[in-house]
Design a protein around this nucleic acid. Structure first.
Lengths: 241, 241
DNA sequence: AGAGATTGCTAACGCCGTTAACTTTTGGGA
DNA sequence: TCCCAAAAGTTAACGGCGTTAGCAATCTCT
């Protein structure tokens, strides 16, 4: 067991350790960006840090854990980026805030395609993301920002909820609702949120993963149209910048 | 150089070789399905076939080529599956045909998530898919089916093309148009096609890649709604089965 | 100063893709 | 029918990978 951090020297050790952890992730990310996901290897990271691969096991129990920590930190960065974009608009205009966050998501994804791929192109990573998915899930820190904005939009907005909601959904939707603060959101509205998230994810992923390359060099206007559509669905009358 | 196929023996040799090629892909796919993409390895395939890894180099020049051949064959299977779904409806009702093809795409993706991931979760594979992308691109055999159906829909339908098309797009859109037979399709209509394809891809990918797990156990109705939306955009008044 | 935890190392194992050099099989022409 | 060249598959080996075991150094606290 490590000594409890608290004394001055103990604290310093702890900080050094955290700096090493940070340098590992920094190096791994650099390899990801410069040479692709296959290059993010224990031996390569150690080499770049003038270490040997087994030494890294003092910080991560396995290669998989290192990658997981990397994705988690990327989710944090993405969440912070989206929050910053959101805060460039007044809280009194959640529509503009959400629009800005959506566009920032696309901008970040295009600027960091490898990172986006690591986060969002995972068919069946493991069963680590159970259907319920705890609020501690790294992706939740990111997704929560969009969800909260949609809630704001609902509070002041004019979302017209769909009718005839499939009863099989209510159980899962209620679980999502529990993660939200404040007054309970109608399940129908949560359904609208999910549908909008699906559309936003698709609009970004189809572009970043190159599935529009065959047709378009600049899908920007197409994305803008999609965002306007989403905002309209959420009751925002006119598009925000 | 191999002997020119034509003699009886020559033809038989050729068929044996093609059977070996097929068995390699069959084995690779089985490994992909059963143990994930990382398990599709030359040595594992050879092991399963009672061979040694270097022997596979008689059939594929490198591991990358084998994977590429696998993805190409999967594109073919997907295209055939979509064509079959399309042909379950009369050609006089392209709306129903397209709806069936869309739903079949989702069905195939959910039934073969590993294969779908191999085909559609590739951020920056290589620059092999140039913006222009030849009609020989394996993905074109698949995408062409949806595109042709959209053209059919336009011929009889009531697509209202958008106005104010970004002039920067026309060059790329014209390239797509050249791949289509028959009378030239207006660029604005092609824009609608691309936008619908983006939405369809997103609706399938967001589900297969597990980015709706946090909320929904059965996103089927959500997907149906999206398909109806797409068909409406393409001028289909009422949803087909 | 000494005990114990922390941090890094070397050596080694089995897996991977890939190459080189070899044997074996096989098909077709003299 | 025999022979030979091409095809198909083998073993051996290289470097890189994740991972483990065991060992040395260093650092912290008493």
């Amino acid at each position: 067991m490590p000594s409890t951090p608290g004394t001055s020297t103990g604290r310093r050790r702890h900080r050094v350790r955290e700096e090493a952890l940070a340098e590992i992730l920094r190096t791994g990310r650099r390899l990801l960006v410069e040479e692709g996901p296959a290059a993010v290897t224990l031996r390569a990271i150690a080499r770049e840090m003038n270490m040997t691969a087994p030494g890294l096991y003092r910080y991560y129990a396995a290669h998989r854990d290192l990658i997981q920590a990397l994705t988690s930190s990327l989710y944090d960065e993405l969440a912070a980026t989206l929050a910053a974009a959101r805060d460039r608009h007044p809280a009194s205009e959640p529509g503009r805030q959400l629009g800005a966050a959506c566009r920032e998501l696309r901008r970040w994804a295009l600027e960091h395609p490898q990172e986006f791929g690591l986060l969002f192109a995972k068919p069946l990573t493991d069963a680590d993301t159970a259907p319920g998915a705890a609020a501690h899930d790294p992706s939740w820190r990111f997704g929560g920002i969009l969800l909260e904005l949609m809630v704001q939009l609902w509070r002041r907005g004019s979302i017209q909820p769909p009718t005839g909601l499939d009863p099989a959904w209510t159980v899962q939707l209620e679980e999502v609702r529990e993660h939200l603060d404040g007054e309970p959101v109608p399940l129908e509205v949560i359904y609208v949120f999910v549908s909008c998230w699906a559309r936003l994810y698709g609009a970004v992923a189809v572009e970043v993963f190159g599935h529009l390359d065959f047709a378009l060099t600049d899908p920007g206007p197409l994305f803008d149209h999609t965002v306007r559509d989403i905002l309209t669905t959420l009751g925002e009358p006119s598009p925000g910048s």
